[in-house]
Design a protein around this nucleic acid. Sequence first.
DNA 1: CTTGTAAATGCCTGATCGGTTATATAACGT
DNA 2: ACGTTATATAACCGATCAGGCATTTACAAG
Lengths: 100, 100
Amino acid sequence: MVDPITVLAEPVRRRILDELRVTECSVGSLVDALAMSQPAVSKHLKVLREAGFVSSRTAAQQRIYRLEPEPFRALERWLAPYRRLWGTHLDALERHLEES
Amino acid sequence: MVDPITVLAEPVRRRILDELRVTECSVGSLVDALAMSQPAVSKHLKVLREAGFVSSRTAAQQRIYRLEPEPFRALERWLAPYRRLWGTHLDALERHLEES
DNA sequence: CTTGTAAATGCCTGATCGGTTATATAACGT
DNA sequence: ACGTTATATAACCGATCAGGCATTTACAAG
């Protein structure tokens, strides 16, 4: 599985990305945050890693995962031609509303 | 299945959207373009329709499908917080390169 | 080198999903 | 009303995938 969009189809994987958006995380803290078995989380992390969404570094026995930008950019590139069809862009007001 | 990203995970559905990005299409012309059985295409169209990506109007015996913007906007809204992490935006140069 | 902790991997199962064939519905012309 | 064209739906099959449990690997402390 290498296609970014396919990887994002899994809701749990999006929750993982949401967590990592706040801070980088060890596998254990993701297990706590998601209330899910450790093997399940590790499996999702493997998929995310192979698709480039996350990278990991070793810290003692822990593996610390963090977000990587490239697949998100790829998603934007895919989306761009559609956005251009309707001049859909997030303007300042929309951006402000999102942040609340 | 209602989640836009899950709907887009299917490669054939993205090809359908690619076709509809050029012009609105009847089911039959999509069948030709995709070289795929009519029931398969109709099934994908149903999923796309229920997720709001496309709408259809009746013209004689044909059903003409066309793109609808809202789910794409939803995708952008989901993507926005990540984009903000790296200031990832498509600038004029990138936009130009895409068009080639 | 043993013990303990953290994470990854292997195997199995149940559910989901895409494709096919066959059939039903819808709209048109005669 | 009948036959024809265009599309939708139903029933079935095979493949894929997420989750669970058990096991293994990686690393550190004693």
